[in-house]
């Protein structure tokens, strides 16, 4: 079951998702918001190929979605290319990730940018760096026309990041 996110009145939304709802939420959001819109999906834990294959099974049009993938190269596959994906070598390569997001936002002006997820970012980066990167990302997106949803699991490891990032977004949506 998907959840309505108020992106009409908010530019940047942080979605704090219960572990049990994570998969449904991601799929539901992609189907309801990214599907048939020029949009961008930033994936820090799922390879591009798996995402696309999964979305296609659910009749989601992936041609209009531009992906940024930090998993495929990390899993050792370096000779990858796709027309609608930028591959980054690791979620800890924050400068490369930031440049890739800027490129995508400037080049295609996506209606929605979906960041999946702060939890995965936290695995590879200390909390302080995760917060700084996310604040910079929020500022970057605010200066653009693109609206952004940040996903974060509702876990004890994420509590500090959620508290700090909540101050910089327009709305915090709990998905329980």
């Amino acid at each position: 079951m998907s959840q309505e996110i108020d992106l009409e009145n908010n530019h940047i939304v942080l979605c704090v998702v219960n572990h049990e709802r994570y998969q449904d939420f991601v799929t539901g959001f992609t189907k309801n918001y990214l599907n048939n819109n020029i949009s961008s999906y930033i994936s820090l834990s799922r390879p591009y190929q798996s995402l696309v294959s999964n979305f296609e099974k659910m009749k989601i049009d992936t041609d209009s979605i531009f992906f940024i993938d930090t998993s495929t190269m990390m899993a050792g596959k370096t000779d990858v290319q796709a027309e609608n994906c930028l591959f980054i070598d690791s979620p800890s390569a924050l400068t490369n990730l930031s440049i890739a997001i800027s490129k995508v936002v400037e080049a295609s002006e996506p209606k929605y940018v979906f960041f999946d997820s702060l939890s995965a970012l936290l695995i590879y980066n200390p909390e302080q760096m995760t917060v700084k990167f996310t604040k910079d990302l929020i500022n970057k997106l605010r200066a653009s026309k693109s609206k952004m949803v940040l996903v974060c699991l509702n876990g004890k490891d994420e509590a500090g990041v959620i508290e700090k990032i909540s101050m910089f977004v327009d709305k915090v949506e709990k998905v329980e």
Binding site: H19, Q23, P47, S71, A75
Partner: peptide, 11 residues
């Protein structure tokens, strides 16, 4: 590689 739950099967 990181993974949430059954997304492990991606790898």
């Amino acid at each position: 590689v990181p993974s949430f739950g059954d997304q492990l099967y991606d790898f």
